[in-house]
Amino acid sequence: MREVSSGYGTMRVIHGLNFTIDPGERIGLVGLNGHGKTTLISTIVGMTGWQDGSIEFMGQQIGGRRSHGVGRNTPKIVRSGIAIAPQGDAIFPGLTVEENLASGAYTEGAWKTRKQRRDAILEVFPPLRTRLKQSAGTLSGGERRMVSVGRALMADAKLYLVDEPSLGLAPKISIGLVDALCKIDLGDGAMLIAEQNLPLLSGRCDRILGMHAGELKEDVGEAFGDIPPAAEM
């Protein structure tokens, strides 16, 4: 990612970012509310109002100058191997949990092996096992988030983008969720987790990037001391 800027309308949210994600890496992205974490993720999948600079994914140009058609290229980008678990719950409330998970397996290969993939995800999120046939709209907040993240993991993507997995969840549940996320074997896939709580990620990721006011601060390092992650603001 080189010299990337983006924003919505007249707002410029991201200011000339440069960074690389290596295969198999797990990166935490830390920053306060409104400092551009979500926008960065949206920029990668082409959901911002406009963007500038170049984003390269596996040798292929997926970014570039764009100023209209929000989200028009998103499916193409997503299908080229980027899985995204968006902020909040973008699940399909009328479908069952099983169908929700299956909808994440959008590539031909992933669709054929969706049973095995689903079982692998149920290993990570055991609470979903009993709710497979249930409509996703009736789940609790934590379970919805599991479905949302699980759906992203169903794809055999090269890059997983997870936006605010802890948002709106009780501290215990969010710790469990992040732990699970960091335990999953990604193969050569990389993962980017955006999060407000530094302590929640520290020690669990390979690298932690700080984000402030739309600019990136390389390698924040580990959190000091043994303190539990803060509750949501």
Partner: peptide
């Protein structure tokens, strides 16, 4: 907006 380079010290919005 695409030309702006200042304001790095602020919340983007």
């Amino acid at each position: 907006a695409t030309r702006t380079t200042r304001y790095g010290a602020f919340l983007p919005e």
